[in-house]
């Protein structure tokens, strides 16, 4: 598998390994178009999100949240910050 070359922000959705779940704390910059769109796609504070699998070449990644699967690249998933104490609990 190709390595994920882009930088992953610690504590963000981009760092959540396949199979793991966590709760969203906030989306960075929700008032710009990118952040706003992410929240309209369901990436809202308090939402549980699971990393389903990565594309064969390592990016983008499919996430499951609010009952559907959405895929994001590292750049976007870096902006979704997770609640730290939830990181390891289902």
């Amino acid at each position: 598998m190709a390595k994920r070359t882009s930088t992953v922000t610690p504590g963000s959705l981009a760092g959540l390994a396949p199979g793991e779940s966590a709760r969203i704390d906030r989306v960075e910059g929700f008032d710009d178009p990118v952040g706003q769109r992410l929240s309209h796609l369901g990436f809202l504070p308090g939402t549980m999100v699971t990393t389903v699998r990565r594309a064969p070449m390592g990016d983008p990644t499919i996430f499951e949240l609010r009952g559907n699967q959405m895929c994001l690249r590292i750049a976007e998933s870096n902006r979704v910050l997770l609640t730290v104490d939830d990181l390891d609990s289902p």
């Binding site: 178009p33 990118v34 992410l38 796609l41 983008p60 959405m70 895929c71 994001l72 690249r73």
Partner: peptide
């Protein structure tokens, strides 16, 4: 331009 990449994976 700085647009997000997102794509739904329908069942």
């Amino acid at each position: 331009d700085k647009l997000p990449f997102y794509m739904e994976m329908p069942p």
